Simulated scan of single mutants.
Amino acid sequence: MSLEAAPEAPSGASPADTSAGATDDWGDGAKVRRAWSPRGFPAGLVALLAAGVAGTALYIGVTARIDRAPRWSRDLLERAQTHEWRDNWTIVAGLTAAVLGLWLIVLAATPGRRSLLRLRSPGDAMTVYMTRRTAASFLRHTALASSGVLDARVRMGRRKAVLRVDYHFRDPDDLHDELIERLEERANALTLARVPRVDLRLQPVSGR
């Protein structure tokens, strides 16, 4: 689990208003927000590239102003003015820059941290998260506790938990009803902000 500070309630709000807001945020899971990643590496990469390009342009401009531009910068400017920009390496460089730009836009518009599931907040100044692996482990152990269950695999999502259960020597309908009841009870006990729907798939195993 991880803890993060949450925004404080607006000044002047009554306890009743705060409670009502909490009910709206956590009641049906419609307004649950994911944890945002700090994006340290992409931000540092962009800053480094921007600093490199800006520094190079400034150096060329200053040296050209005082008529002391190095040979490589004069060659670069001459090539930029006379080149037709139809070479393969130019196309590849342009496509690479476009893909990198789209990647940065996606990173800026998406929260990231897909491995974290938000829990119901225990206080106004605290936000609590549980990893998907932890939640999946709770559901898996709950399924394995039922008689006849040999193995269980869980794929945990934000809205749905898919369980594939191998079983033997049990009536599938009885086992399904038993597991659904136990798994839904466990899913509610996890205190997730958005309680996942349980999708149970039984697979009989013979000879074991």
Rank of each mutant, 00 (worst) to 15 (best):
residue 156 M to K: 05
residue 146 S to W: 13
residue 132 R to N: 10
residue 139 L to D: 03
residue 141 H to N: 14
residue 154 V to W: 11
residue 131 T to C: 03
residue 143 A to F: 13
residue 135 A to W: 14
residue 157 G to S: 06
residue 133 R to I: 02
residue 137 S to V: 09
residue 131 T to F: 11
residue 142 T to P: 07
residue 131 T to Q: 10
residue 135 A to S: 11
residue 134 T to H: 09
residue 153 R to Q: 11
residue 128 V to D: 07
residue 160 K to G: 07
residue 132 R to S: 09
residue 140 R to W: 13
residue 141 H to K: 14
residue 156 M to V: 11
residue 146 S to Q: 04
residue 158 R to G: 04
residue 152 A to F: 04
residue 136 A to S: 12
residue 135 A to F: 13
residue 140 R to S: 01
residue 145 A to F: 14
residue 143 A to D: 07
residue 139 L to R: 09
residue 147 S to L: 04
residue 151 D to L: 13
residue 159 R to A: 03
residue 141 H to T: 13
residue 140 R to Q: 04
residue 143 A to C: 11
residue 133 R to C: 04
residue 131 T to W: 12
residue 142 T to L: 05
residue 136 A to D: 08
residue 157 G to P: 09
residue 155 R to N: 13
residue 154 V to H: 03
residue 144 L to H: 08
residue 153 R to S: 05
residue 128 V to G: 00
residue 141 H to D: 15
residue 145 A to R: 12
residue 159 R to S: 03
residue 150 L to Q: 11
residue 128 V to K: 06
residue 130 M to T: 14
residue 134 T to F: 11
residue 156 M to L: 10
residue 157 G to M: 00
residue 153 R to A: 09
residue 133 R to D: 04
residue 141 H to Y: 15
residue 135 A to N: 12
residue 134 T to I: 09
residue 133 R to M: 07
residue 137 S to Q: 15
residue 158 R to F: 08
residue 158 R to A: 02
residue 141 H to M: 14
residue 147 S to H: 05
residue 138 F to E: 15
residue 136 A to L: 06
residue 134 T to G: 10
residue 149 V to A: 02
residue 130 M to D: 07
residue 138 F to M: 14
residue 129 Y to R: 02
residue 154 V to T: 01
residue 129 Y to G: 02
residue 141 H to E: 15
residue 150 L to S: 05
residue 142 T to H: 07
residue 140 R to C: 08
residue 151 D to M: 11
residue 138 F to P: 11
